[in-house]
Simulated scan of single mutants.
Amino acid sequence: MFKKILVAIDGSEQSLKAVDSALELAQKVDSEIMFLEVVPPIPAFGTYKKALEHTIHERDEKMIAEARETIANSAKKFDELHIPYKSKVVIGDPAEQICLIAEEEHISLIIMGTLGKTGITRFLMGSVSSKVVAHAHCSVLLTR
């Protein structure tokens, strides 16, 4: 049924609920789990791109380290129950990367929270979960 589950996390309370749902489902159907956190890029164009290159690289490294820590914290319950998982951190548009990686990895279910970022960030970026539901090749379970 759901042999491969991708759990999209971002450290928000909603994504932690997605982790709990994945844990419950993995125990019932013996699924392979993949944790994915996508770090949004900093948009820089033209002459500013070269000037900001070092700053962007430092920010990306910091965000990737934080994402790995978030995944490690989220996966503790899986470790305790000896449920195997793999993890990945990428930089890019969150909805686009979630759908792309789900397809590349032959994922049968994506689990993610309905809310991540809030306020103006959500308004400007649009709803990641809405985009994933609209474009994913597989089933999507949204947690609240």
Rank of each mutant, 00 (worst) to 15 (best):
A8Y: 11
A8M: 09
I9R: 01
S12C: 07
S12R: 05
E13H: 13
L16F: 14
L16Q: 14
L16A: 12
K17T: 07
A18R: 09
V19C: 09
V19G: 07
D20A: 11
D20H: 12
A26M: 08
A26P: 04
A26H: 11
V29P: 06
D30M: 06
D30H: 11
D30W: 01
E32T: 06
E32P: 00
I33D: 03
M34Q: 14
M34T: 13
L36G: 02
L36W: 04
L36F: 02
V39E: 07
V39T: 04
P40F: 03
P40Q: 11
P41A: 12
I42K: 07
I42A: 05
P43N: 10
A44H: 00
A44D: 07
F45E: 14
F45T: 15
G46K: 13
G46H: 10
G46D: 09
Y48E: 11
K49S: 15
L52A: 13
H54A: 10
H54L: 09
T55M: 09
I56Y: 00
H57E: 13
E58S: 13
E58I: 03
E58N: 11
E58W: 12
D60F: 11
D60N: 15
M63N: 11
I64L: 10
A65G: 07
E66I: 00
R68W: 12
R68D: 13
E69Y: 00
E69P: 01
T70V: 06
T70C: 04
I71W: 02
I71P: 01
A72I: 00
A72D: 04
N73G: 08
N73F: 03
S74F: 03
A75H: 03
A75K: 02
A75E: 05
A75I: 06
K76N: 06
K76T: 03
K77L: 02
K77H: 00
F78L: 15
F78D: 10
F78A: 05
D79G: 00
L81E: 12
L81S: 10
H82K: 15
H82A: 13
P84H: 13
K86P: 01
S87T: 13
S87A: 14
V89W: 01
V89Q: 01
I91A: 11
G92E: 10
G92W: 11
P94Y: 05
P94A: 11
A95L: 03
A95W: 02
E96D: 13
E96Q: 13
Q97L: 10
Q97R: 15
Q97T: 13
